[in-house]
């Protein structure tokens, strides 16, 4: 029972990380690093919370979260791709703006009017038959819709990136944009597309927090998840299955450290809290995956 609870918590913790990291993998494979994921997640979170609060529709909340994050993602893309501004600094600015905008909306709409309250959340949907499977059933098949979506999205995005011509173009844009340009493929449009895709998934990952995992919004709710997701991408060697496993590993370590704290070991809780980070480091050191980053990562493309 304890193990089922642990693994079930793992999946809950990992879901938003995997969403965001899948998107960022696409973006980085196309040569654009967006460190503004935390800001985009917050935009997604406040949009979803506000939308669900006023419309009561969870589906609408998720769509709105993705669109809002894409709007800010478009701004990032304009600066990073068209204007060719430094991607890292632009991303840092995006984080500040995301924190500010989400906090401002929260204060104007909710805190200052005194209507702070819980919203309804995505219910757990036990899948018929599958949820009856001993052990795996309650862990994998008695979760909310977003968790199922991440299970579906992972193989699809992996397939698209590795086996389709679109994926080939995306990967080529991140390695040799000039070659891509010379065969007549649109470098800018591919990069814009990947950035917007990443933004939509960051919005979704942010939305997961206030309308699926918990039922509230607060300033800074994401608590650094955007940065962890960012770390997952190089950790996984820029592969989709890798970020999926990396997200699960981190989620598992987090769920485990909470349980170790409850178990009252004779270890200072601060060290238990660092377990997810230590474990990520350990796996990084032990694994033999030494993929180099996309060659054109962080390098703006000069047409002509």
């Amino acid at each position: 029972m304890e193990l089922i609870a642990l693994l079930s918590a793992t999946v809950r913790m990992a879901t938003p990380l995997i969403f965001v990291a899948i998107g960022e993998t696409y973006s980085e494979r196309a040569g654009v690093m967006n460190i503004g994921l935390e800001g985009l997640m917050l935009i997604g979170a406040i949009t979803a919370y506000t939308a669900v609060f006023f419309t009561g529709s969870l589906f609408f909340g998720l769509i709105a979260a993705m669109l809002a994050a894409m709007l800010f993602g478009f701004g990032f893309a304009y600066l990073a791709v068209t204007i060719k501004a430094n991607q890292i600094v632009t991303g840092a600015a995006l984080n500040m703006i995301g924190l500010g905008v989400s906090g401002f909306i929260y204060r104007v709409v909710f805190a200052n009017t005194g209507i702070v309250s819980a919203v309804k959340t995505l219910p757990a949907i036990p899948l018929p038959f599958l949820s009856e499977i001993p052990f795996a059933g309650p862990i994998l098949f008695n979760q909310n819709a977003l968790v199922y979506f991440v299970f579906i999205l992972t193989p699809i995005t992996a397939f698209v990136l590795n086996k389709t011509s679109l994926g080939l173009s995306i990967r080529a844009v991140g390695e040799h944009p000039r070659a891509v340009d010379s065969v007549g493929l649109p470098v800018f449009r591919l990069r814009y597309g990947c950035i917007l895709f990443a933004a939509a998934l960051a919005g979704l990952g942010g939305a997961y927090l206030p309308i699926a995992h918990a039922n509230q919004f607060v300033e800074g709710l994401t608590a650094g998840r955007g940065f962890i997701a960012l770390t997952m991408v190089p950790f996984a060697g820029w592969t989709i299955p890798g970020v999926f496993l990396g997200g699960l590993l981190f989620g598992a370590a987090y769920a485990l450290q909470l349980r170790l704290q409850v178990a009252q070991l004779a270890i200072a809780y601060q060290f238990l809290q660092t377990l997810p980070y230590l474990l990520t480091l350990a796996v990084l050191i032990l694994s033999r995956n030494r993929t180099e980053q996309p060659k054109a990562l962080c390098v703006p493309y000069e047409a002509g």
């Binding site: 029972m1 304890e2 609870a5 642990l6 918590a9 809950r12 913790m13 927090l209 206030p210 995992h213 918990a214 509230q216 607060v218 300033e219 800074g220 709710l221 608590a223 987090y254 769920a255 909470l258 349980r259 704290q261 409850v262 178990a263 009252q264 809780y269 809290q273």
Partner: peptide, 24 residues
């Protein structure tokens, strides 16, 4: 038992910490 989640905003962490205890 006393535990810490190292955050004041992470509602998800607060929830998971409680669920870890409930499982125990």
């Amino acid at each position: 038992t006393l535990t810490y989640i190292n955050s004041w905003e992470d509602i998800g962490a607060g929830k998971e910490a409680a669920m870890a205890g409930i499982a125990a």
